[in-house]
């Protein structure tokens, strides 16, 4: 049995350091899973596991990134249990491993019709988030952690246990995929003239 005073202190510390991140963990879980029900399960499981492991948390370190790491690990384990391998890899996104073109071909098209990117204003949030959700998990995680939550390359590398170079590759490729589908969506909705209409 844990010493009563120590237990109270641990609970108080957890409430003070971990619970303020519940909104951020919920958003992360929602973006990872794409389902409110699953996100709610992930949040509960994340905080319960974190509370049970609180003795292993080093005070003063990045509590938010520690919670995100737990949340992602829980999500990946749940996904492995819930899907067959062939379903996991059947993601219809170009994942070619060649070098990215230095000049973004999407922007080359967009800059002719709308150099200020005003077409972005017409795209509703739900559409943006749906396309984030459609990214492969490794790209999606990098984009969420960097662009939505503001973590550094090094922090993302530690959270996802890959080298910084891999984080950059996933992040840059994920952004390119997302930019391409948002541009195509804007063209299909008439928010911006497509390259063929320009000619």
């Amino acid at each position: 049995m844990t010493e009563p005073g120590k237990e109270t202190k641990q609970t108080a510390d957890f409430h003070e350091e971990a619970l303020p991140h519940m909104d951020a963990v919920f958003r992360f879980a929602l973006r990872l899973s794409g389902s409110r029900d699953q996100a709610e399960d992930l949040v509960q499981e994340t905080f319960l596991r974190a509370f049970k492991s609180w003795e292993r948390y080093a005070p003063g370190t990045q509590c938010k990134s520690w919670l995100f790491t737990i949340c992602r690990n829980v999500f990946l384990r749940q996904r492995e249990r819930g899907q067959r391998h062939d379903e996991i890899v059947a993601e219809n996104v170009d994942r070619s491993s060649g070098p990215l073109e230095t000049v973004n071909p999407v922007w080359v098209k967009a800059v002719k019709a709308d150099p200020e990117g005003d077409f972005f204003d017409a795209i509703v949030d739900e559409v943006v988030l749906q396309h984030v959700q459609d990214l492969p998990e490794d790209y999606r995680t990098a984009v969420i952690l960097s662009d939505l939550e503001g973590f550094s390359y090094q922090e993302i590398a530690e959270m996802t246990e890959v080298p910084v170079g891999t984080v950059k590759s996933r992040l840059f490729r994920g952004r390119r995929v997302l930019q391409g589908v948002l541009y195509d969506y804007a063209v299909s909705m008439g928010y911006i003239k497509g390259a063929s209409e320009e000619a």
């Binding site: 919920f26 958003r27 509960q44 990117g117 949030d125 662009d147 948002l182």
Partner: peptide
Amino acid sequence: HLRLEERFREVLHRSQAGESCPEALKEQV
């Protein structure tokens, strides 16, 4: 090209602004 990259990031930020954990879930935790 820089401007379009900036606009892209703005729209990502905007898309999740104000989204927070439901109170019932906080209480459950």
